[in-house]
């Protein structure tokens, strides 16, 4: 039971976050609020990817002992001998994917805000029900 909890609690929390964001998008009447909900559930997905990438007793996916100088001899040797343990580093692939997903999120937010400004210029409101009234 405890193992199950340790292995899944982050997923459960993040799914809850996903649902909260979705709730915001679907039920909020103010369009900015909808956008905030959208941001929340996008970042829930980002976090769920990141959570899925972690490994026990592993470190960040930057080779150790390489902080200071370029072409650090120790790292080069370690790499050359194939001594790098995959279990020793966190899975870097989801991190990379999520960098892209974050960028996509910003891009979407930017376009959405541009749309909101246009909507407000044309209709003078950002409230969904008022907007529907003024549209018809």
């Amino acid at each position: 039971m405890l193992d199950f909890f340790l292995g899944h609690y982050a997923y459960l929390f993040l799914v809850a976050l996903f649902v909260v964001g979705l709730y915001g998008v679907v039920t909020k009447r103010n369009l900015v609020k909808k956008l905030i909900g959208l941001n929340i559930f996008q970042s829930a997905i980002i976090l769920i990817y990141v959570a899925g990438a972690s490994k026990w007793n592993a470190t960040v996916p930057i080779l150790e002992g390489s902080g200071a100088s370029y072409g650090d001899a120790g790292v080069a040797q370690e790499a050359a001998h194939g001594a790098i343990e995959a279990a020793h580093y966190i899975n870097p692939l989801p991190h990379t994917l999520m960098l892209t997903a974050i960028v996509v999120g910003v891009a979407t937010t930017g376009v959405a805000l541009a749309l909101l400004i246009t909507i407000h210029r044309r209709y003078g409101t950002l409230d969904e029900s008022e907007l529907l009234e003024r549209m018809s």
Binding site: L22, L38, Q42, G52, L115, Y123, L131
Partner: peptide, 27 residues
């Protein structure tokens, strides 16, 4: 713009669902 915004919300939800589903498959 209102139609576009509605599509943006729907489309982003769709893309996020796709991404979420992809996470399951990747896992």
């Amino acid at each position: 713009p209102v139609a576009a915004f509605r599509y943006l919300i729907m489309g982003t939800i769709g893309a996020s669902f796709y991404l979420f589903g992809l996470w399951f498959i990747y896992n």
